[in-house]
Design a protein around this nucleic acid. Structure first.
Lengths: 111, 111
DNA sequence: AAAGTAGATTCCATTACAGGTATATACTTG
DNA sequence: CAAGTATATACCTGTAATGGAATCTACTTT
């Protein structure tokens, strides 16, 4: 059930990936930089590893994790058919990000 | 909670979006083309709408849904830092830098 | 106005998943 | 070998999200 897209639905996992995008890191480094409990880091890394987003290199007692491209490419590929909706006007993202940062104004979901 | 990324974790929702990438469609059209129960389609469309992925145009008793670009752009933007892992101009040097270019406070000694 | 059509909403049951805590494993150093 | 460090795993629990079925609302046609 955990598809490629399901994996990156989790904010802490995205944070880990974004951190690893800069450079590879050990579990402890991730733990400190993201300030999350070690078991949590290990569990997320396991999920990411089993889904192919990262791979680990063993260095004594530590494991150094790094990005693997393939699953991210899959997401990128899924996005392709949608690019035509914005390749024209790039600045709409800023407007969108502004909107979601505010507390959502009710879109008449309740009455 | 349901972030932009959480929304597209659901396979049926991705199917709906991919369908709408071709052209706008009514609920009934989505229902038949994807062969899913109508309440399910409506519920997913609601989630997509509230997250800004789609918007609806009213046409008598039917509602015609179409793609909105912004949330998809947000995903595309998140992917940017990872592109270097697979784009053509990534060469051996860049991969090498991934390993060594960290200048961190070294709190451990070398082996 | 009654019947028909399109879509939305509610309720319910199930399940999957993330967080927390405790513990286990593996390697290293004194 | 004992102690310490780094990471992984197991267990438990609460929550949130999904699917199904029934029902409701709105618009249209005759």
């Amino acid at each position: 059930m955990e598809s490629t897209f399901g994996i990156i639905a989790e904010p802490n996992r995205r944070a880990i990936l974004s951190l690893l995008a800069f450079s590879e890191r050990s579990v402890g480094e991730i733990e400190h930089q993201l300030r999350m409990p070690q078991p949590s880091v290990s569990k997320h890394l396991r999920v990411l590893r089993e889904a192919g987003f990262v791979e680990a290199r063993v260095d004594a007692q530590r494991r150094v994790y790094r990005i693997r491209a393939e699953p991210l490419m899959e997401i990128d590929a899924w996005l392709v058919p949608f690019r035509r909706f914005w390749s024209a006007h790039v600045d709409a993202l800023e407007r969108h990000l502004d909107r979601v940062d505010r507390v959502r104004p009710g879109k008449r979901k309740k009455r």
